[in-house]
Design a binder for these strands. Sequence first.
RNA 1: GCGGAUAUGGCGGAAUAGGCAGACGCAUCAGACUCAAAAUCUGACGCUGGUGACAGUGUGUGGGUUCGACUCCCACUAUCCGCACCA
Length: 803
Amino acid sequence: MSKLYNHKTIENKWRKNWETEPINLPSEDKKNYYCLDMFPYPSGSGLHVGHWRGYVLSDVWSRYKILQGYHVLHPMGWDAFGLPAENYAITMGVHPAKATAENVENFKRQLKEISAVYNWDNEVNTTDPNFYKWTQWIFVQMFKEGLAYEKEMPINWCPSCKTGLANEEVKDGKCDRCDSEVTKKNLRQWMLKITEYAERLLNDLDALNWPTKVKKMQSDWIGKSYGAEVDFEVEGHDEKIKVFTTRPDTLYGATFMVLAPEHELVKTLAAETHNHDVEAYVFNASLKSSVDRLQEKEKTGVFTGNYAINPLNHEKVPIWISDYVLADYGTGAIMCVPAHDERDFAFAKKFDLPIVQVIAKDGIEVELDEAYTEVGIMINSDAFNGIPSDQAKEVVANYLEENKIGVKTTNYKLRDWVFSRQRYWGEPIPILHCPDCGPVPVKEEDLPVTLPEVESYEPTGTGESPLADIHEWVNTTCPECGGPGKRETNTMPQWAGSSWYFLRYVDVNNKDALVSKEKMKAWLPVDMYVGGIEHAVLHLLYSRFYTKFLYDIGAVEFEEPFTQLFNQGMICKNGAKMSKSKGNVVSPDDLVENYGCDSLRIYELFVGPPELDSEWDDRGIEGVYRFINKVWNLVMDNKDRRVKVTPELEKIRHLLIHEVTHRMDSFHMNTVVSAFMEYTNSLIHQSKHNQGVDLDTLKILITLLAPFAPHMAEELWEVIGEKGTVFNQTWPVADPEKMKEDVIEMPVQVNGKVRATVTIGVDEAKESVLKKAKLAVDKVINGQSIVKEIYVPGRIINIVVKA
RNA sequence: GCGGAUAUGGCGGAAUAGGCAGACGCAUCAGACUCAAAAUCUGACGCUGGUGACAGUGUGUGGGUUCGACUCCCACUAUCCGCACCA
C-alpha cells in the first residue's frame, strides 16, 4: 500500500540537502541565464501570499531554465535605505542600520520558506558601504560629465516626509509614499540630467521584450511632441518672448499670449509698470499646492499691460499671466489661439479676448461655441489660406525658419530628476563645497563617504538634512586647493541604489570596479526581470538611464539593463490589494504548515493568469494539495509494478511534455498547472483501469513537476531509485509522432450547430468522412437540400442546408 | 477629458490559427466506504422546458462580416489602471 505523503518531513529533508548539495552548478557546457526579482525593501512586517507570487514565478522560471541546461543566476538582495527604517529610528531611537539588519534577517528567514534557488553568496545590500561606494562613484562620474548639477528651484516638497521629491514620486499631487499633499519649496537641489537621455530612452523602448503597458507608460512619461519655437517681439522692449507650439498652422489666430507666473520676464514687466495686480497674482500662485492647481476649474489670470507682436500678421497681442501655463514645460510662455485650443478658448471667454478662426471645416468660417480642434482648411491666414491644416504645420514651420522668426523643435514632458533628499538614511552625496573651487567631487580613492553617527535622525524640515548638524563631519578640506570645505549634507533618494544593483550581483566582492568586464560579459544584461508594475516610470526608467550613462562612459557594454520584463499581477483579498493597513493580509505561514511549500507554490500559480490581479481564496489550495497527494500516490502505486509502456501511455506522456512546455514558454503558468492535473488524472485512470504506468512516464512527470514542486519531485526521484538530484535531468522534448491519434472524434454541424460526432480514421478520405457525417445528421437534415459541405480536417464538418 | 486593460456557470478560470464554449480547480448535490464523522473514491453540476431521449437558449449590450464568432469589424455600457491645463 502507498506510504502517506508527509510534506513536513520531506520538505525539511530536501531543504537541508540542497544546502550541502546545491542543484545549480556551473559547468563548461552550460550557458548562463540571469533571472532577477525586483529586490525588496526589508520591511519589519512579514511576507504575505501576495509577495510570494512574484518570487514563486521567478523561481519556477529559474528552475525551468536549470532543467533546460542553463547555469542560472537568481540572486536576492535588499533595497534597504529609505524612510521606514529612519522613521523607526526617530520614534524608537534605534540606529537605522541596526533596525535594517534585523529586518533583513527576518525577511531572509521568511523568503527561505519559498525554497527558491537564490544565490545567497551574491547577496547585495544598498546600505553596505562596500556597495554604496559604487553608488557614489556613479554620482561622481555623472558630476564629471556634467549630468549632475546644482540648482535652486521650486521643487515638490512633502511636508510629512520633510524632503524634496522627484516628479515621478508625485501621484495626483500627493506624495507617492505617504499620500500627503505635496507643496512647492524653493531649495538648492542636486539634479540629474535625465532629459539629455530622453530621445534614447524613448527610441530604445521598441526593441525591448517588455509588456506594452510599461513601454506605453514610459513613452507617455517622456512625452515627446513636435512643433516649433516662435519668437514674439515685445512692444517697447529689445527682448523677445519665445513660445513653443505644436500648432504653427494656427499662428494667425494667436490673439494673446500667456506667461507662467514664474516666467523670468514677469518680474521685469511688473517692476517697470508698477503693476501690483501682477505682483499679487504671482505671489498667490506661488502659494498654491499642486492639488489646488489641479482642482482649479475656473481659469484665473492678470493682464500685464504690455503687448507683443504676432510675427505673421503683425497685430498687437496683449500679454497676460496665468498659472495654467507651466513654467517648466516648453519656454514657460505660450501663444494663445482661442479658436482652436480649449484652454485658450475658456481663457478668452472669461477675459473677453478676441477669438479669430483660422482653421475651418471645408474652409467655411462659422460661429464657434467651443474651440475647433479638428483638422480643416486654413482661413484668415493671408498667403496660407486654402492649405489643409495637417500639411500647414510643416508649411508654416518652414516659413518661420526661412524668415528667422522661429525654428522647428521637439519638446519632452520628462523633467530632470530631483536627486537630493533632506533625510539621514541614504547615501551621502559625495561632493564638497569649497568657497574657492565651488562644488568638488570627493576623490575616488576616498570613497565611500560613509554615513556618520548623528544624535537626532529627525529631519529639520527647513530643507537641511540632519547631517548638517554634525560639524566635525561637515567641515573638511577641499581636495582641490586644500582650503576649508564643507561636505554636501543632502543624501540620495532610495532609487539611487536600485538603479544599478542588478549589475553588482554578478560581481559582489569586486573592490576595484563596479563590475569586472569578464563577469559582465558572462551574465549581463538581465535575461528575465520579474516584478510589480508600480515601478513602470520610477525604478525601470531610472535603471535604463543609469545603464545608458554607464554605457557612455564605457563601464558597461550594453545599453538596456533588462532584456525581458514580466509584471506579475497583485493578489487581492475582498477586492482590495493585500496590505497590512487594510487588514486583509493572508500569511503563508499556516498554509506552508498545513499544506506544504510545494502546494502553496503551485497554488500561487494556479490562482489566476500571472499578469492579472487575482482574488485569493484559501479554499483553493485544497485542490492543489489533493493533486500533490494524487501524484504521490500514483508514483507509489506504480514504482514497483514493472509496467511496460503502451502507445496510450506514450501518448499521454508526450502530450504532457508538449502542453507543459508550450504553456510555460507563453508564461501561462496557471494553465501549466491545469495540464499537470489533467494528464495526472489520465495516468491515474491508466493506473486503475489498465495495467498501470511505466517508470519512464513517471520519470517524465517527476522531472516536469520539479520546478513547481521541487521537494516532492526530489523525494519521488529518490523513491523510484534514481541517484542524485532530479535537476540534473534535461527538460524532455515531445515527439509529435507519439502524440498522434489513430482515430479522431469529429464534430458534425448542421448550419453551424453541432448535431453529432463521428469517428474517423486519421487519414480517412474526404468523401468517406462526409458520407459518415451526413448519415449521422440525417434526421436533422430531414430531406432539406444541402447547399454546401465544409470539411476542415482535424477540426470540423459543417453541412449547410436550406429548407 | 485622453490612453490602456478587463467583462465567460454559484466562484477562480480554460478555449494555438475563426471550428464541439465552460478544460482544470473550488463550492454544492447524490452515491460508495464507515457504528459515525473526516479523509478517500464514483457520479451529477450554465440556464429554460420536458419523467425522458431531447429541444430551445447561452461568453457585458446592440448591430455587422462568415458555412461557422468568446475570438474579427462598428457602436455602446460597466469596472479597474495610467496620464491629466504638457500648449
